[in-house]
Every structure is written in structure tokens, then in C-alpha cells.
Simulated scan of single mutants.
Amino acid sequence: MSKLEDLLAAKGALLADGATGTTLFDMGLTSGDAPELWNVDEPDKIRKLHQGFVDAGSDIILTNTFGANRHRLKLHNAEGRVKELNAAGAWLARDVAEASGREVLIAGSIGPTGELFQPLGALSYEEAVEAFAEQIDGLIEGGADILWVETMSAVEEMKAAAEAAKGRDIPLVITASFDTAGKTMMGLSPKGMAQLKTEFACTPAALGSNCGVGASDLLAAIMDMTAADPDLIVVAKANCGIPEIRGDEVVYTGTPELMAKYAHMALNAGARIIGGCCGTSSGHLAAMRGALDAHVQGDRPSLEDVLANIGPLVSPPNLEADAAREESAAEGAGGGRRRGRRRG
């Protein structure tokens, strides 16, 4: 068994970390800069990032390597530093984890390439596999315990990352961002995500959702995933409440109390790994740690429960359009009329 499986077996549910980007902006990162360069240029600030999450009780911390693939780094003339920046990012996280005196797992963060796949764009599947493999080499060299592929939208990109992870003898986690009327930008539904598990070259240890729009939208997504596969180990890593535009800033409105409620509801919905994404500070995580430690399993929430306790959906599903697509597909296959599925 992997360290991830061992820790899940021992604790039942795990707390992941919070926001990397928004926390680093508070430390002085400028919009347009590559946060991954700080793994070498500002290592003490990256240690501080991780230390805050460890002190708050995180069982899993993600490396500062979300955009550390050759395609994103070329925007900063750093495409030749992929292995260096990933290894440094994993090593910094491991340094903090090992000093904690308890088991804290290092998840090597792997984000999208930022490129469109053929035929919509120029990136081939083989090129994506090569880019992810290069990043994975650095993360493993730095001591990552998990390969954590996150904020994905396209099925092809998830499959390319899984192909690159094949044979690495390290667990793979994949999370998608369901931010477009209940689906990813490329049209993948949470139910479809759950059904993909057996189609990857390297079977993920866990699937789930991160980022997106609001915490309610993310809870609705993971409820769909756990309904589709109750045995699936599901990750819920929501943004901190509902984002609001205030001038030139995006402000996340979630309080520690709200995020504690979200953690309880995610556990009741069947998630096993809970964390926060954009706007989630160490203070929010401390409240979530308390929620996990005090949690008594309750009834599975309905969508109405989520809306009442966490807030409205920011990007609700377009049920009429989904129903029309299902009806069109059924008629094309010679089938009868099909009803659109309701959430919750």
C-alpha cells in the first residue's frame, strides 16, 4: 500500500491544504509572475506557505509547481528549468513536512499545460505526455509522495497525465474544475469524471474536484461523483465561499465557520480528502481541521441542504440544454425520449 492508502486507512478522512496562489499574492507575488520561480528565488516564503498549512493541521500539502511544465514556463523563458523547479518545490514541501513530527504527505501539483489539444490547437497527445513526464521526474526527485493532477478540464489532458504517471510506483490523484454550468469548460460532467476511472493508463487512487466557482457548486459536483460510484475515493477542494469582484480584485467571501460547514457536508456527501482552493487561508483550514476531527457521520445532504447552508450555485447546470442533448443522442441512436438527471 502507498503512504496515501495507509494514511486514509488510519484516519478515515484527510485534510489537504489551502490556496497557494492567493496566499503567495499576499506575500508579494505580482500578477503575471510565475510563482514556481519562487521555489528557487524565494524559498523561505514557500516554506512559510507550507508551514502555515501544516500548523493548521493539513495531512497533505501541495507543492508550488502547478504551472511548472515546459509549456507554461516558456512564457517566462524558463522552459529549460522544469526539472529544477519541480524538484525544488517538492524538496521545500518535504523539508517542512519532515520537521512537523507527524505524517504529512507531499502532493506534487501538476496543472494543465495551458495549450489546446489537436485538432482544436497545436498540442499533440504525445507532446503532452512528454511534458507531464518531465515534470513528474522532477517531483519524484524532490520527494513527492503523490502525483496530484489538478484543475483539469479536458479528458485528453487527464489521460496524458495518467500516461506519464504509468509505472512510477506512486499514487495518482486527478481533480477537475466543474466551472461551466456544472461541467468542465470542455464539457465533462462530474458523473462522466467518475466513470473515467477505468479508462486511464494509470488507475488513479482518487478523483475529485477543485477550484471552479463556489463551494456549493463543488459540493454539487462531488455529490454527483459519489452517487455515480459510491466506492470512489473522492477529493473535495473548494474555493473559499463565493467569489466577488470588487474593483480589480476577486475576493473570496467564505468565513472559517462556512468552510467548517462545507467540510462536514463534503464528508457526509462521501468525500474522503477535503481541502480548500482559492482564498482558503491557514485560518480557514484550522476550522476545517476542527470539523474533520469532530465529525460524526450524518445523512447524505441534498442540493437544497447545500444551498441553505453554504450558499447559492454560482454556475448552475443548464438542465434544459442537457436534456436536449440527451434527447438528440437517444433519437440519433434510435432510442426513445430520455429525461435529464436532477442533481442531489
Score class of each variant (00 low, 15 high):
Asn77Thr: 11
Trp38Phe: 14
Ser58Pro: 09
Gly121Ile: 08
Arg47Thr: 10
Ala90Glu: 12
Ser124Met: 05
Ala34Ile: 10
Lys83Tyr: 00
Leu29Asp: 08
Lys74Asn: 10
Thr113Phe: 00
Val54Met: 14
Ala131Gly: 12
Leu92Ser: 03
Glu126His: 12
Glu36Gly: 01
Thr20His: 07
Asp41Leu: 11
Ala97Glu: 00
Asp95Gly: 02
Asp137Ile: 06
Leu49Ile: 15
Ile60His: 05
Ala144Phe: 12
Ala34Glu: 06
Asp26Val: 03
Ala78Asp: 03
Leu85Asn: 00
Asp44Tyr: 08
Gln51Ile: 07
Thr63His: 07
Ala97Thr: 07
Ala99Trp: 00
Asp59Tyr: 04
Ser100Arg: 04
Glu5Tyr: 02
Leu139Val: 06
Glu79Trp: 00
Glu5Thr: 09
Gly121Asp: 05
Val40Phe: 00
Thr30Gly: 04
Gly121Met: 04
Gly67His: 01
Asn69Ser: 03
Ala9Leu: 11
Leu92Phe: 02
Gln135Glu: 06
Asp17Pro: 07
Gly21Thr: 13
Asn77Ile: 05
Glu36Val: 03
Asn77Cys: 05
Gly108Ala: 10
Asp17Trp: 04
Gln51Pro: 04
Val96Ser: 10
Asp145Ala: 12
Leu73Trp: 02
Asn86Thr: 04
Gly52Glu: 09
Lys48Ile: 04
Glu42Gln: 15
His50Gly: 14
Pro112Leu: 05
Val96Tyr: 04
His76Pro: 02
Ser31Gly: 13
Leu15Thr: 01
Leu123Lys: 10
Asp59Gly: 09
Arg47Met: 11
Lys83Cys: 01
Gly21Ile: 06
Ile61Met: 07
Asp26Tyr: 05
Gly80Leu: 05
Lys74Tyr: 09
Ala88Phe: 08
Ala93Arg: 08
Ile136Val: 13
Asn86Ala: 05
Phe53Glu: 03
Met27Asp: 13
Phe25Gln: 15
Leu120Asp: 05
Glu42Lys: 15
Pro112His: 06
Asn64Pro: 12
Glu42Pro: 00
Arg70Glu: 11
Glu98Ala: 05
Gly142Cys: 06
Asp26Arg: 14
Asn69Arg: 00
Glu130Gly: 10
Gln135Arg: 03
Val96Met: 09
Thr113Pro: 01
Arg94Thr: 09
Leu123Ile: 13
Gly143Glu: 13
Asp33Leu: 11
Gly32Ala: 14
Gly57Phe: 02
Asn39Trp: 03
Leu7Lys: 10
Thr22Lys: 10
Ala78Val: 04
Ala128Cys: 09
Ala56Tyr: 07
Gly142Ser: 06
Ala131Pro: 07
Ala10Gly: 00
Ser58Asn: 09
Leu75Lys: 09
Trp91Gly: 14
Arg70Cys: 07
Leu24Glu: 09
Leu92Tyr: 00
Ala107Arg: 10
Ile146Met: 09
Gln118Asn: 11
Ala90Tyr: 08
Lys45Ile: 14
Ala13Trp: 04
Val82Gly: 03
Leu105Gly: 10
Pro119Ser: 08
Ala133Glu: 13
Asp95Ala: 13
Ala78Lys: 09
Gln51Ala: 15
Ala78Cys: 09
Leu8Ala: 11
Lys45Asp: 14
Gly108Val: 07
Gly121Tyr: 11
Asn39Ala: 12
Glu84Met: 03
Thr30Arg: 15
Gly114Ile: 08
Asp44Lys: 14
Glu141Gln: 14
Pro35Glu: 15
Ala131Arg: 06
Tyr125Ser: 05
His71Gln: 12
Gly52Thr: 08
Thr30Trp: 04
Ala19Gln: 03
Gly67Val: 03
